[in-house]
Design a protein around this nucleic acid. Sequence first.
RNA 1: GUCUCCUUAGCUCAGCUGGUAGAGCAAUUCACUUUUAAUGAAUGGGCCUUAGGUUCGAAUCCUAAAGGGGACACCA
Length: 506
Amino acid sequence: MIFENQYIQERIKKVEILRSEGINPYPNGIAKGVGSETFYKSCQHLHAKQEGQKRDESVEFRLTGRLKFVRIMGKASFAKLQDSDGLVQIYYNRDDLAEGYYNKMKKLIEVGDIVEAVGFGFVTQTGEITLHCRELNLVTKSISPLPEKFHGLQDQELRYRQRYLDMIMNPEVTKNFIKRSKIVSLIRAFFESKGFLEVETPMLHPIPGGANARPFVTHHNALGIERYLRIAPELYLKRLIVGGMDAVFEINRNFRNEGMDHTHNPEFTMLEFYWAYKNYKDLIEITQEMFEYLLERLNLPTILEYEDKQIDFSAPFVQVSYIDAIVDIGGVDREIAQSSQKALAFLKANNVKVQENLTLGYLQAELFDAFVEDKLVNPTFITDFPIDISPLARRSDKNPDVAERFELFIAGKEISNGFSELNDPIDQYERFKAQVKAKDATGDDEAMHMDTDYVKALSYGMTPTAGEGIGIDRLVMMLTNQSSIRDVLLFPAMRPEITHSVKTEE
RNA sequence: GUCUCCUUAGCUCAGCUGGUAGAGCAAUUCACUUUUAAUGAAUGGGCCUUAGGUUCGAAUCCUAAAGGGGACACCA
């Protein structure tokens, strides 16, 4: 039974006592009190008063919040109440509350309960602004005790599984999530100010597309068909460009059925935006601008601490081509980087596990991952991606081996991916076919599926368009200096916890 | 998926080379009308994650499982 714990039982008894005394432990219709911040500000002037007179009984305040500490000292008590502004101290004693109320309630109102305190401000002997209560009412009884008051809740697992407790015990956690919310809100404002329209496209896809990833599969009962939770909104957003929306964005969840670690959660939030009559160079510009906007509005410094690194966001961010990055940053000879045979040999010589049948572009990607990615600490735009690893990007008019594509790296991590979109329907059709072939040949179960409806859409003509995706979770990690994605997700994915019962055979 | 470490009271943690369970906070009772992790006194509280094994004897050693942390791999 969920409530069998002795401490919970003790508190349930208190609930019963309260009811028998005619006090509702879960009353309704109580308005939120004045925030503790406001209370402090309104009482600041009391500090200036003479010793022994630091009080103003003429102004009444009503505070509401959860009790975090209670110190009963016989006929008087101090308690700390936590509201959305923070902690505030209240004082209550036998003589200033209603007759008999103090003795009846002092043990029935305890740490964890949510209360309403009404009274006036004063300054204690130790100089703390405190509410002297004339009234102290229970707002909501807590029957589960809070974790230890000094160490709080440390256990990572409990913090993620019981995020509400984490928030009660570790207020800085809430602060990070408030910041996350602000970041998302600013991004919306930024794109709207640029004339983008926010749209919502399907989560249930008949064909998973727009990324190389394994999808979750689900079932539609009425239709009797499989659906895939979306791995990316890309193909739908581009259909909207075909339809004549010139600038769209979507901030929403993607689902990928892959491993979990400190940078991967099965569901994560992506910003994707598509911009007609623009190319990848315009994207680089607007991305740079977006970062400047975010840092400024969040009051963050240009040089940001992240883990053990210092990241310099001074504009403009460096731009390097994929090949040059491998050569100049990765320290790989240009000859090696431009020959399949030499690249393969080099990778093997450096103990990088690679498949034999990879094309040059894929080998370059291996070189990049192994020798370059970690070194891109300050924001860096990597441009001119190999065409083989960019199945949805437009081929460069100057160099057919290269796509008009870039990725932004910060602190060794990919933050954004953007390109001039492929709008030649026949080229797109061929590339899908190649992906399907790769799927069969190499058993690459992340390779893309053929999406004939998307090709059909392109066949009506899509304006030259640039599109980009930014991983919101990783962006928030960077801006809140968190090294685990779980610390920027309110409810990170967890395995089910109680499975002591039957083990299923393999 | 692999390696590695962790799981003991509500919480934070001790528990040695195996001898039968400890502290602090929290709780209960008492004292205390300006405390700051309040204080002082007393009391209660345990499926030592689970299942096997070794042993006269297991929280402790071994094996497996579950959950979690970290690293790597897969993955953009």
